[in-house]
Structure formats: structure tokens, C-alpha cells
Nucleic acid binder design. Structure first.
Lengths: 218, 218
DNA sequence: CCAATATGGATAGTGGCACTCTCCGCTATC
DNA sequence: GATAGCGGAGAGTGCCACTATCCATATTGG
């Protein structure tokens, strides 16, 4: 197909597709003449992945480029792809160093031990968590940190479900893509569900005129 | 205190504080002379809240202004504050209408019935979820939607913990602020935990028994 | 065959965002 | 009385994700 059809199918304008090719996010089409090229379903798929990561995942084009580059490198082991995807979701670069941050890192390390998680406190995710703890305390809501274990307990089955989904993929290309999609869009999915659950819990707690009803486990 | 000290305490530069005042995010200081004003701990607290929502929560200044305006309006009921906070987290404006989106909305409605959640499918959170489902399918990973119930089950205890934390606040100002902090930073906290849990699950599934590889190798 | 449209490639420009700079006349402080 | 800081306001900056324009060439429909 030519660029016009690719544009129609993907919902991305022709100039934007050209822009993505220039930026190295999308491979150029196969040239059939000096100024004609053909694109295939791989281009369409890649374009949809870019738009999902950009629009729903909220990643920057630079971050997306990083992720795609890792996906396309067949030498990269799968867990590296996960690492890059996770790293680029949050651009939270540590924050200001200081005793607050050191304490938060220590707390993250303790949490990992407490839960027996095989992860490092200094990994990007660990740093992001420490940054959140610091921000909570700085904002005067250090009490919220008490929920850390509740949150961690909820994160475990989610992560298991994610890995289970990824594990069902056979082909490497499909696998690494599902890692990225699962990491990024899974986050958006959970966030939306959490907010829906908030609405529910808030309706029950603060009243919308209807009587309270107990809910299953509580 | 004067603006210089406020800047030192909050870590926000003087021009940026002035900018926030101009934009209506921060109330002006109490004028003691035509060109002298004094700021108090309330300003400091508000400034730290702004930075937390901006740096960690990833909200835009416009969204933060919206949220703060709702917080400051004593007539606003608490669940409205939650609604505004939830609404402004994701700027996901519905996406393109079409049969895909209608189907996704229907799916969200069914989920709400299935779980007995008192929330509306057409709420911002419901729309956001529908948007994620559409994006997953468009990206060729509709299978990920199978995890919806697993995710929802994990979201319930998280939402309960959030509301429980909020419920322990007495003063209205503290309460609505904790709603915002909990909604926004809680999301960042869970995301970081989920990624840590991924690392753990991935280490067990793909790297078990082997020594950890340094990042970037491969 | 020819006009209208589409294409690849490149450079330059746009609009939004979150600041940041500069200037002014005035005030607090050493 | 010199110096640093201050409140206020407009203009400028840098980054980001496009978007517009231009050119020579290709394809397409009549």
C-alpha cells in the first residue's frame, strides 16, 4: 500500500507519518521508484503501537523511539525490553538527592525484603517509588505511605496476570510487543479501574442518597 | 516570610512562584507595603502540593488550577473533589467515536454490573477505561482485555485503602487535599509497585537461577 | 496524451506549555 | 547611602509534537 492508504487505515495524517519516518520511529517504505514507496501491514501495526503508547500511555516520542529500538534489536533479552519500557514510562529522574531520598530508598529496600520480591531498590521502578514517597512526605501526606503494603499486595496478582499474558505469546516480536503494551496500557487500564472503584467506594461512604450496602470482602 | 524564604523552603524559584501567583495557582502574599508582601505556611504547603501534582502526578498546570479551585471552594462536596481530581488526571478526550468505542463502553457497563460497582460507564473514569480497551484492540492486543477482571479485583482493595485513609481526615481542607494526593500520587505509587512486581515476576520466569545481568548488556 | 492528484523528501513554521528574563520603581537592611 | 531584595507585568525561551510549504516526479482517469 502507499502512504495515503496507510494514513487512512491508521488514522495518522500523511505529514505525521512522514515525520515519524524522519524521526526514526517508523521504517521507511520500500522504494519502487525514486519517489514512490510501498508500505505493508507491519508499518500499520507499528503505527498503531506508536499511537497507543503516545495517546494512551502518555510516552514522549523520544521514549517511544527508545522502546521501539529495543524491540527491534533481536539481541535484547525479553526482560531488558520490560526494563526499558518500565524505565521510560516515568521520566522521574530521582529528584533532589538528600536524606529524605536516602530514607525513602531504604524504605523501598525494606519493602522488597518484606515481600520477598526479587527486584532492586535502585532499579528505575524502585527509584520512582522512592520519589513518590518523598513527594508524599513533602506534601504533608506522609501518612499515605502506610498504604504501601496494601498497594504492594494488590500489585502482586496484577503483575502475575501480566506475566501470564505475556507468557502465552510465542513469537518474539509478538512477545516483546505485548510486554510493552502490557506495561504501558496495563497501567492506564488499572488507573481507570482504580478511579471507577473510587467512585463506587465514595458513593458508598459519602452517600449519594442510596442506603449503604455491604460488599463481599471487606 | 517573604518570597525569598518561601522559595528556599519550597525549592521553587522566585520567578516561578511569581508565575504561579499570576496564573492563579497560588494566592498572592499579604501586602505590607505597595511592593512588599508576606507569605505563610499555607503558601508553602500549597506550593508543595502544586509541585507534587506537577512533578510526580504529571498533571498540567491547567489541570492543577482546576483541582485547586475545587479544593478551595467550600461549597464543593468531597466526592466532587474526587471527581475533578480523577477527571483531570487523564486528558483522554474520548477518542474517535465509532462502533469500537460503543462496544468498549458496553463492556465497561457490563463490568460495573458484574462487580456491583456504583459507578457510571459514562463517567470520566469509565470513558478512560473504554478508551484503553479500544487502544488495546487497535494495537492488536485485544487479548489483554481478558485481564480486566483480574485488574478490577486488585483495584477494589486499593480503592478501599484509599478511602479509608481519606476517611481518617477530620478537617475539610486536609480531607480534600488527601483525596487529591491519594488519587494522583497513589496512582504513581501503585504504578511503581506494579513495575517492581514485574521485575520480580520476570526474574522468576525468565532469569531464575542465573546471576543478574548488568543493565545494557546483551 | 494530458491534466489532476498523489508521492517522497526536505526545510521552515506553528501552537502549546512551563517557565525564565528583563525591567520598573520602591523597600528593607547593613 | 549603597546594596540587595521586592511586587508586578510584559516579553522571550526552549522543548515538543506536529503542520505547512515547496519541489520534482509518479500514478491515475479520461
Amino acid at each position: 500500500m502507499r502512504i495515503g492508504e496507510l494514513s487512512r487505515r491508521s488514522g495518522v495524517s500523511v505529514p505525521t507519518i512522514k515525520f515519524y519516518v524522519r524521526e526514526g520511529l517508523l521504517p521507511a517504505g520500500q522504494l519502487t521508484s525514486p519517489n514512490q514507496a510501498s508500505y505493508d501491514s507491519g508499518h500499520e501495526r507499528r503505527l498503531k503501537l506508536i499511537r497507543a503508547l503516545l495517546d494512551v500511555g502518555g510516552l514522549s516520542l523520544a521514549a517511544i523511539g527508545d522502546v521501539l529500538h529495543t524491540i527491534d534489536d533481536p539481541a535484547q533479552p525479553v526482560h531488558n525490553v520490560l526494563g526499558v519500557a518500565a524505565k521510560r514510562i516515568t521520566a522521574l529522574e530521582g529528584g533532589e538527592p538528600g536524606p529524605e531520598l536516602d530514607d525513602a530508598r531504604e524504605e523501598v529496600a525494606e519493602l522488597l525484603v518484606r515481600r520477598g520480591w526479587r527486584a532492586e531498590a535502585h532499579s528505575p521502578a524502585g527509584e520512582a517509588l522512592a520519589g513518590v514517597l518523598v513527594a508524599l512526605r513533602r506534601a504533608g501526606h506522609g501518612g499515605f505511605v502506610e498504604l504501601l503494603d496494601d498497594y504492594a499486595a494488590a500489585a502482586e496478582p496484577v503483575a502475575r496476570a501480566d506475566l501470564d499474558y505475556v507468557g502465552r505469546r510465542a513469537a518474539r516480536e509478538d512477545l516483546v510487543e505485548s510486554v510493552v503494551i502490557g506495561t504501558v496500557l496495563g497501567e492506564a487500564m488499572f488507573s481507570a479501574l482504580r478511579r471507577l472503584a473510587h467512585v463506587d467506594a465514595s458513593a458508598r461512604a459519602y452517600g449519594d442518597g442510596r442506603p449503604r450496602e455491604p460488599r463481599g470482602a471487606g
